[in-house]
């Protein structure tokens, strides 16, 4: 009966938003799996020079096309070697660097562009919104792969060019989602309250609006990372992305495709790793949406 003497004590018993989030994150298997895979690959990419058993560029004409260990190869080259005798595992490990770097930086560049445009359009409305909406429509009318192909064909393929092209092309979804989220939050009375307090526009955007739309941003970041990684692989496969001898998963698939009928593992191994990474990033994105979605909030 003592706990009832203070009505406030029974009223404030719920967990904080942070505690709720933690509980939901650890209860979501897809999210945990996605996070774990991405984290492991990130560590592998960062520690590539330490982990990789061989130099990924070292060619050996005598040790060409050695099969992986599970197809009768040796532990010297656990995943075998490619047509130039380079250690496949080492190239795969270094390839993770390329994929994650491209995914991360391209998503960062397009995230900054798209978020700035979307938030401005959603918050200011009117002419700003009209201009941004027009730009989004223009961008959506351009076929990404074709434009990327054209640019890379003119400027020549390199890691920098691929990152720049993807970063400047993939902002559309950021702009669309951030515009819609901002519109929604903008109508909340706490934004009006901050305006009535006399808070400046940058302050309102950064401290009242952003914290409430950042969950949507994170979801789009993951989707666009996966998108960029797949596009890089596609461009590299077509010979217009990362140039040899840089190890890239897309390039590895491309180099192995001539021997696919005789040595299918040359294509299957980088393909499987790519599949797992993109799946993990998408699971992470889905999971983040689930744990932060408003309808999940009590």
């Amino acid at each position: 009966m003592s706990d009832l003497s203070d009505p406030l004590l029974q009223e404030i018993t719920g967990p904080t938003p942070g505690q709720l989030l933690r509980k939901r994150v650890f209860g979501h298997q897809g999210l945990i799996f996605g996070l774990a895979v991405v984290a492991i690959l990130a560590v592998v990419a960062i520690l590539a020079p330490v982990i990789a058993p061989h130099d990924p560029y070292a060619q050996s004409l005598v040790a060409r096309m050695k099969p992986p260990v599970f197809l009768g190869g040796t532990w010297e080259n656990p995943l075998g070697t490619d047509h130039l005798g380079r250690d496949y595992l080492s190239r795969l490990i270094y390839g993770a660097r390329v994929s994650l770097m491209i995914g991360g930086i391209a998503a960062l560049i397009s995230g900054v562009i798209g978020t700035a445009m979307g938030v401005a359009a959603g918050y200011f409305g009117g002419k700003v919104d009209a201009v941004v909406t027009f730009l989004i429509n223009v961008r959506l009318a351009m076929p990404v792969v074709l434009v990327a192909l054209a640019v890379v064909a003119i400027l020549g393929g390199s890691l920098t060019v691929v990152i720049a092209v993807l970063g400047l092309l993939l902002w559309d979804r950021f702009a669309v989602v951030m515009r819609a989220s901002t519109l929604q939050v903008r109508g909340r009375e706490y934004v009006a309250a901050a305006q009535a307090i006399g808070a400046s526009t940058p302050r309102i955007l950064l401290s009242e609006i952003m914290p409430n739309i950042v969950n949507n941003l994170i979801v789009v970041v993951t989707l666009e990372m996966a998108h960029a990684i797949l596009l890089e692989a596609a461009l590299s496969f077509l010979g217009l992305g990362v140039q040899p001898p840089t190890p890239s998963w897309g390039l590895m698939v491309s180099e192995g495709k001539n021997m696919m009928l005789f040595e299918p593992w040359l294509v299957l191994i980088p393909g499987a790793v790519l599949f797992v990474l993109v799946l993990a990033i998408n699971l992470m994105g889905d999971g983040l949406r689930d744990v932060t979605a408003p309808e999940n909030r009590s």
């Binding site: 706490y190 009006a192 309250a193 914290p211 409430n212």
Partner: peptide, 26 residues
């Protein structure tokens, strides 16, 4: 102002102390 909907007038990402002290900080 005091608004109608107390579920919409407080920023859910801010602690009560941050919400109340915002005018002083601004």
């Amino acid at each position: 102002p005091i608004f109608q909907d107390p579920y919409s007038s407080l920023n859910p990402r801010k602690s009560i102390a941050e919400i109340i002290s915002l005018p002083l900080r601004v």
